[in-house]
């Protein structure tokens, strides 16, 4: 019936219409705070990051080593069996250079980010993190990288205890 309708309803406004008060506006800022429990698997994962190590969980059924660790295997749908340390080296699975911050505001110096397949985890098991100490033009899929840790005293049990990953 696309042809039958001559008028498609809606009243467009520009951002100037909002700023200039052409129409009434109502403002609100929700002020909800959250405290998420880290759970069993992430609890140990974060604890080990504080120790400068990366830990995963192994499922004996499919033999996968999973990072980030989880207490269940979502494919076999059974509990995972054991804790396994993986290496703090890996290979870039894919990467990007972000000229946007978290609020989509423009930034001048791009943030290099990557999915890194970890040595010692199963093929294709990677984590999202940032890259550093690297010429953006040289980054490529398959590049070998290693974790650069914060000094032990500054580590707090966070994914950001790894500052970034740098080329080997």
């Amino acid at each position: 019936m696309s042809e039958k309708f001559k008028e498609f309803p809606g009243t467009p406004l520009s951002s100037r219409d909002i700023k200039s008060g052409k129409v009434l506006t109502f403002k609100w800022r929700p002020n909800a705070k959250y405290a998420w429990t880290v759970g069993i698997a992430y609890g140990r994962f974060l604890e080990e990051l504080k120790n400068g190590r990366i830990i995963g969980r192994k499922c004996r059924e499919c033999s996968r080593v999973l990072v980030p660790p989880r207490m269940f295997c979502e494919q076999c749908f059974r509990p995972t069996d054991e804790w396994v340390f993986v290496k703090n080296t890996g290979r870039i699975n894919t990467f990007s250079l972000s000229y946007l911050d978290a609020d989509a505001r423009r930034i001048k110096t791009p943030i290099p980010v990557a999915v890194i397949d970890l040595d010692g985890a199963s093929p294709g098991i990677g984590i999202l993190h940032k890259l550093g100490n690297v010429d953006p033009k040289r980054i490529h899929i398959g590049m070998r990288v290693r974790a650069v840790w914060k000094p032990a005293k500054q580590r707090e049990g966070s994914i950001t205890d790894i500052k970034y990953w740098e080329p080997i």
Partner: peptide, 22 residues
């Protein structure tokens, strides 16, 4: 994920860019 991903301050476009690159 608030524990292992949000601390990196990602933007949603990241995952598209990563997927597109791959």
């Amino acid at each position: 994920d608030p524990i292992i991903t949000r601390p990196l301050e990602p933007n949603l476009v990241w995952i598209f860019a990563l997927e597109m690159q791959r």
